[in-house]
Structures are given as C-alpha cells and as structure tokens.
Design a protein around this nucleic acid. Structure first.
Lengths: 347, 347
DNA sequence: ATTAGCACTCAGGTACTTAGAGTGCTAACA
DNA sequence: TGTTAGCACTCTAAGTACCTGAGTGCTAAT
C-alpha cells in the first residue's frame, strides 16, 4: 500500500517534527540526504500521504505535520526493532535502584523524577499495589493515655501507620489482645484478603476473649482497613512546560487542572494490560488528555502485575526513546522486586 | 504626615486593585461614596501619594497602582484591628483537624490544600520539626534472610521507616542486641539528641556486648541517623495560575522552577520568627520571589516552635484575609498539638 | 482648598502591507 | 511513466499606521 519512498518520507517528517515542532515543507525535505528527489516530487508524495490520512496541514499553505494516524503507523511499523535499552540512561536507573537502602516508595518517587527529567515529559507511576504483598506484622503502640499509633508492616517492607485517639469505650487491654490474635492468625496473609479473614474467621475467635467485642472490633476495623489507596507518583509536572505545545496559558491551566484529578489518572493507569502500551491523542478515552499521548508499561512481581509506570506528553513525542526508557525501567523495577522479596516464604 | 483623605484614598485604591488587578484612575475613584471629591482633587492627592512613594504608575498616563511601600503601609497601618478569625473558614479548618484519626502529616497536607483553595494562592507548610519530639520505640523487623525494615516511632505518633539489606558482615543477632540496648537507653530522648547520645554513651555500652562492633555500628548509624529532612507540604501550586499576574508563560515557568527548589523554600520558612510575618516583594531575600509576597505564621508545641505555615501570592494580595486565615490555622494546629501530645511524660 | 477644562500621553485594538514559506497544478523532460 | 521546473496562489507572521479611550498634569476660575 505505502511505497518504500512514502515510508521514508513519513519517517523523516515525523523524526523532524518530533525534534523541531515546526511543520515541514517539501523543499526542506528534498534537501535531506535520504530523499534525493526534487521538492515537486516530494510534494506529490506528501499530497498522497495526506490523502491517506498520515499527514495534516495546519493551514492551506503550510508545511505538513504528522496526524495521529501517522504517529500510530510510525509506532506500529516504523519505529524499528532497535529497542535495546539505551546506554547512559541504564546507569542512571540502576543507580536509583541499587541504593543499598531500598524503600520502594522512595525509588518510585525518584524514578518518576528522573524519568521526567530524561524526557521532559510528565511521568506518572502507579503502585505498587498490594495484591501479592503479605502481612508481616501488626502493632499498636500507645502514645499517651488516649492516643496510640497502629503500625502495619508487609513482607515488602511497606509500612502503613495511623495515629488515632482511643475512645473511652474501648479498653486498651482489649485492643492489645486483638492485636495479638491478629498477629497470630494473620501473618503471611495477603493484604487484600485481610478484610475478609478479619471479619470472618478472626472475628469469631476474638469474641471468645474480649468483653465489649463489638465496639472495639468496629473501631479496630476502621483503623486497619481504611482503604489503602493506591499511590500515585507524579514527576515533573512542570518539566512539560518546556514543550513548545504549552506556549499558551490556557493550555497550561487545563493541563494542571487535569493533573489535579489524581483519581482519574489512577484509573487511567489501572486499566493497562501488561507490556507496553501507546495511546495517541484521541485514542485516549479521557477527554482531558485527548491532545496528548500516554505511554504505559507495567512492572511485576513474580508474574503478578504490581503497578504501572507511564509518561504523558504531547502527541509529538519521542516515542522510540520513551518506549526504550520505560521498558528499561519497568524491567529494572521488576528485577529489583524479585531480588528483594523472593524469599518471602517465612512470614 | 498623611492626611485623613490621603489615607482613605490609599486604602480605597489598594482595596480596589487587590480585587480587580487593574490600575485605577481618578475618575473611577471620585465615583466611590467614600470619596465625594472631584476627579481633579483626587488627582492632586494621588500625585502627592505617588511622590511619597505609596503609589506607582505603569506608564505615564495610566491609573495608579499601589507600590510595595504602599502595601507595606497598608499592612502596617490600614489593615485595621478587625482580625477576628473568620466565620465559615474556621469550620472548615476545624473539620480537617478534628478527624478522630489524626495523622499530623495528613492534616498538614490537607491544610495546605485547603489553605490554597480558600485563597487561590500557593500554600507552603513546613514541619513539624522534630525538635521536641521524643523517641518512643525503635524496631528492626527482618523481612527475609538479607533484608529488614527499621521502624522508629516518636511520641507524636510520627513513624519513620527504612528498608535495607543486611550486609554479609553484619550479624542479625548483633543488630537485635543493639536495638534492645537502644530501646532501653534512648526511650524518651529528644530526637535531635539521638545522634549525640548514640555515638557517645550508647556506643560505649554496646561495645561490651557485641563482637564485630564497628561494622555493625556504622551500619546502624547510617540506617537511623540519615538526616530526617524537614518536610515541606505545598498546596495548590496550580491554584495560583488563576491569578491574573500569571498570564505569561514565562512567569509561569519561572514560578514553577522556583517551586521545585524545595530546599531553598524550606530555608525561607525556617528563618521566621514566631507570630505572623509579612514580606512584600523586594523585601524578600530570595531573588525568585521578589515579585511576590510571602506571609508566614508559626505553630507551636508547648511554647517551642514546631513549624511554619505560609502563603505565597502576588504582591496584590488579600493581606487581611490571608493573615486572618493563617492566624486561625496556626492557632488550631497549636491547640491540636497540645491536645494530642500533652501527656507525654511517660516515654 | 476645590474644581472645570484642556492639551497631552500611551496601551491596545483594528486595519493594511509585505515577505517568506509553502502548496497545487501544468507542462516539459528523460 | 515517473520526475522535475515553473508559476500562480494562499496563508501566517511581522511590521506599520491609525484611532480610541482612559488617564494624567497643569492652569485658571470658583
């Protein structure tokens, strides 16, 4: 369908436009070595490519600009098999991760930062979700007569904590008993099953030991089972201001408004399949980013999907570089997770 | 020095400009009820006020705009004694704080958010610092053969944690011993003194019990004493985009660049005296905010300075409202801290 | 002391012009 | 038949000129 020459032209146009952000004309193209044809010839080809929907004009006599279909074709066919993880960047990534002290949250945060710095787009990292993480320990530590802090540790070294004031009705001693029972019975249980196990099996058991069971138990539940919202790490919201497409105050405003609706973004990333996904412009379902592109990659733990890393930028995006980078990072993260947490047999 | 009428004029100009962001002319002023004079009269007064440095023109034939000196005078003398904490807002603030579950971090985060929403400026909250917080418990929890998580809890319910991999050289049993000793000896010790006590007294003691002391100890130190950076919570970086002074892409860029240098901002807030401070435009020492105003208020715990809350906005700022709000919030926070943590006698 | 009147200034909008980049189409060429 | 040169045409971006309205400063009259 597309001739060899048309492919080359499309490729060159995209590469050039991604770099310069300026529409490109036939004359300029004819000067490139890879296109030893006259401007007129190229004009004809460009007209065809436009008719086929791969190119667009910004106005009747402007140069051409890739259309979303063009980018799509580029990503699917022209991007080449050259997806070896890049040089210098790998070192940077490795440095973040092999820090000796690993704190997954920190790593994620830093990765988001770095990812954005390397690309000048906005990076978004979701997770890690707690699907497969297991309870390691629960602890309640009294702080004063009426306050205490509850601490929950998972096998991945994740620590949730929550301070609360103890209502009059609830006896500290009862709480303590409960915690003991929970530690006894719930160690090694996947976090996602906590709620279920707690309300069924364990509740039975506890009733036997504890006086004013109902009050205390309700309270305990609210302390430990308040949703653990999946965390979203956003890096370089403002790096994207470097992009020339954000040369308009209104665009900036609406971008930042969008970024503030974190739940929406989280949903966006939740529904990704494993592997790398590229969504270009209007392919996105969310209205607010229909003029942007989103590249997502997931990272795993022993086969289970743990979270998603993504980059959000203008449709005029360095797809190749971004895909390379995301792939590299998600692999590193998957490896790191495996390394750290593989021996989680004992609970 | 300033006549009654001049004061009125200055006040009206500032109030109007703060509201509209447009330079104001003599004709418009003469229409206000509080100024039953002709435009010409007012023109003369304005000329005088300009000569005295309280007003400025944006160009030769424009209306007047308050100068920084004008704002300063307004804040110092014209703002009135009417600083009763405002109505509806107090409820909002109280709702955040009296949540039953208190997590100081969360509260601070939410306060920052709300503060910004109520004002459309950017809010910055520093702290709480750990000056007066005391160690409650230290714990090391092994996760796998070679990894563990260290958890440190303060009397304010603050939880620091850190995952790390255990080097070959260090024996798990030694670490455990050390932790025991530390818990024994360091409970109730102010966090800031931890490092000192640890390296002197406690180190002596440990040497007696532990074989390969030096390695283990160095390691431990690096786990527990890595700086606990003072945390900075920023709310509504993008709310400020509503302000008409940010109608220029470059201004937005430089604002966001500035906001990314968190350490600089933290320093800015650290050096505040207690009480409320207003710094207008060039009064600020930091170059990047010389065209903005910063209002800071500190909150306390039993007399000790714990942290600072601040609002950053254009010099054309609703000083009265902001001061009211900050005062209200800082009081609430101080009260809350007192309520929660007053009985911290036992450690 | 206050005000009316007037000449003057300037930002911001509208209209017009021009230069340059680019296109589409036709006709000539290999 | 595919390629190219040439030309008329289009449209943006930048520059220039002009006008209006809001505002000032100053002077003279009240």
């Amino acid at each position: 369908m597309l001739t060899e020459r048309q492919l080359t032209i499309l490729q060159v146009i995209i590469d050039d436009f991604v770099d310069s952000a300026h529409p490109i004309g036939s004359r300029a193209l004819s000067k490139k070595e890879s296109l030893p044809y006259s401007a007129a010839t190229i004009r004809n080809e460009m007209a065809d490519l436009e008719e086929l929907g791969f190119l667009e004009k910004t106005h009747t006599s402007s140069g051409r600009v890739p259309s979303e279909k063009g980018y799509r074709y580029y990503v699917d066919h022209l991007i080449g098999p050259i997806l070896s993880p890049s040089q210098n960047e790998v070192t940077i990534i490795k440095n973040i991760i092999d820090d000796g002290f690993f704190e997954f949250e920190q790593i994620v945060q830093m990765s988001a930062e770095v990812l954005s710095k390397l690309t000048s787009y906005t990076s978004i990292i979701l997770g890690p979700e707690m699907f497969e993480t297991k309870l390691k320990q629960i602890q309640i530590l009294p702080l004063s007569a009426y306050t205490a802090v509850a601490i929950l540790v998972t096998n991945t070294g994740h620590v949730e904590h929550r301070s609360f004031s103890i209502p009059e009705k609830v006896r500290a001693s009862d709480l303590e008993k409960m915690v003991n029972i929970m530690n006894d019975r719930l160690k090694g249980v996947p976090i996602v099953q906590l709620q279920e196990k707690l309300t069924t099996e364990i509740a039975q058991l506890m009733k036997m030991y504890i006086d004013d069971f109902d009050t205390s138990f309700d309270y305990l539940k609210s302390v430990f089972l308040s949703e653990h919202p999946v965390k979203l790490y956003i890096g370089g919201k403002s790096n994207i201001l470097m992009q020339p497409e954000f040369n308009d105050v209104d665009k900036i405003r609406s971008f930042f408004n969008m970024m503030e609706r974190e739940d929406e973004i989280a949903n966006l990333l939740k529904n990704t399949k494993s592997g790398i996904e590229v969504t270009i412009g209007n392919e996105n379902e969310v209205e607010a980013i229909k003029n942007l592109s989103l590249i997502t990659a997931s990272y795993h733990m022993e086969g289970d999907h743990m979270g998603t890393i993504a980059l959000l930028g203008p449709t005029r995006m360095e797809y190749r570089k971004v895909i390379t980078l995301l792939r590299g990072l998600s692999n590193e993260m998957t490896d790191a997770l495996y390394m750290w947490y593989k021996n989680d047999d004992d609970a």
